[in-house]
Nucleic acid binder design. Structure first.
Length: 417
RNA sequence: CGGACUGUAGUAUAACGGUAGUAUACAUCCUUGGGGUGGAUGCGACCCGGGUUCAACUCCCGGCAGUCCGACCA
């Protein structure tokens, strides 16, 4: 991608009112654009990052047998009513009926979660113990009428969500799958370079049992967790009980944290509301036992931006960076020569399958270098009069201080790693 | 949803009851050429509705929108 052709531009200043770091850097860098409170456009570069996050999530969820599907966003009133979730604060409702005569049939709520829809669908396909277990997921935009969106991408009214639902014949089978999902989530967050603590918390309205969420320690988080510096003990403030920290002499500390994922044992709440039953081996009719598991990719994007940055801008981890290489031609007096060299390196990197953002704009060195810091691509490669005269290239890692002069061969070897 | 504050060029900001200023971005030109180079010219704005007034971007009321604090948060 040539930077001169990029749809977005970076900007130097942003309203001081925009408090969160992730919003500041993502908006300034041209990754997202704020449309209204809690509602954002993902600009081309932001979408590239999001798609990389999604790809990692898909790989790991597919690996535990999740099958991807896509449910509707417009969900009729009757679905919500069955489980008693039509009159909730967070639901966005269509403001008026489509036809005056047939009002009832045309009331919709925008999907803020999909337990009701997936359960209704499953009644068509799950009838026997032979049909179990099953698990399906989607990555879709969710809508929630949050009273106060805040923290940039951390809490929005419209956001993307990977929601996975599983169906089981027994509690035991659910519990086994629950552990598998926890494993998969650990892998996902590790690949995303996020240190996510498996945290015990309450079950909300679903269940009196404990459930789990994945929390990334960060001051921008809305939750407070208590965790042990030695063992895996970690509890949300909501349920924290120091007596439960046993067999370990580690110190308990508390910190703010961002919830990037959660796992729930739904039990039979929805299967009973929707008569999702199956016949077991003995021919007995039983409600299907369900689980639901969420990760918010846009919130993950915001979290990564919130965690990986310095005073100059973002520092993307390799796995999700919008590009691998930011190639900069510092054109000057000999601009033709430099442009030519940069252009040919650009073509070469592309032919090798390396994702490159090539800054071919006619700007001063300072502007280009500052922009590179703001955008935060992991490898910065500079071609200039100085490097050209030595027949070398300069490479600098965004997360390291010094730069190196190397020849093309060495550069390619470094990038292949 | 309660409380506080704020709405001015694409963006960020200033002043003023009477001609709306600056920076940046953008356009053209000159200059500079490894950390937002310097300069010239140009383009471009008072959230909406009502009220007070000779006159409202400015004061008052209502709406809408935003930010922050709190409550809420599968």
């Amino acid at each position: 991608m040539k930077q001169s052709q990029l749809f977005s531009k970076s900007s130097k200043k942003l309203s001081e009112a925009e408090a969160s770091k992730n919003a500041q850097f993502l908006i300034r860098g041209g990754f997202i654009d704020k449309s209204s409170a809690g509602v954002y456009t993902l600009l081309p570069m932001g979408l590239r990052v999001l798609e990389k996050i999604n790809a990692i999530i898909r790989e790991e969820i597919n690996a535990i047998g999740g099958q991807e599907l896509l449910m509707p966003t417009l969900i009729q009133k009757k679905y919500w009513e069955k489980a008693g979730r039509w009159d909730v604060d967070v639901i966005f409702k269509t403001s008026s009926s489509i036809t005056k005569e047939d009002k009832q049939d045309f009331e919709y709520g925008l999907g803020w979660t999909h337990e009701e829809v997936i359960t209704a669908i499953a009644t068509r396909f799950i009838n026997s113990y032979k049909d179990l277990p099953k698990s399906v997921y989607q990555i879709q935009t969710k809508f929630r009428a949050e009273a106060r969106p805040q923290g940039g991408l951390l809490r929005g009214r419209e956001f993307s969500m990977k929601d996975l639902y599983s169906f089981h014949e027994s509690k035991k089978d659910l519990n086994e799958y629950y552990e598998k999902v926890i494993d998969a989530y650990h892998k996902i967050f590790k690949r995303l370079s996020l240190k996510a603590l498996l945290t015990e918390t309450g079950g909300g309205a679903f269940t009196t049992e404990r459930t789990h969420e994945f929390q990334v320690l960060n001051p921008a988080g809305e939750d407070t967790v208590f965790y042990c510096s030695k063992c895996n003990f970690c509890q949300n403030q909501e349920i924290y009980d120091p007596k439960e920290h046993k067999n370990c002499n580690g110190q308990i500390e508390s910190a703010r944290a961002i919830e990037v994922g959660n796992v729930f044992r739904l039990g039979t709440k929805f299967s009973e509301a929707y008569s999702l039953n199956f016949l077991n081996k003995q021919g007995e009719r039983k409600p299907v036992i369900m689980g639901s598991y969420g990760i918010g990719p846009t919130r993950v994007l915001g979290t990564i931006a919130e965690v990986f940055n310095d005073e100059y801008g973002l520092i993307w981890p390799d796995a999700v960076a919008p590009f691998n290489v930011h190639l900069i031609g510092l054109t000057g007096k000999n601009s033709e020569k430099i442009e030519k060299a940069a252009e040919s390196l650009y073509e070469k990197l592309i032919s090798l399958g390396i994702e490159v953002l090539y800054d071919n704009r006619d700007l001063s060195a300072g502007e280009k270098l500052n922009d590179a810091d703001l955008i935060g691509i992991p490898n910065r490669v500079v071609i200039s009069e100085k490097t050209l005269s030595k027949n070398k290239l300069e490479i600098k890692k965004r997360n390291e201080k010094g730069s190196k002069l190397v020849d093309e061969k060495e550069l390619l070897a470094m990038l292949k790693k």
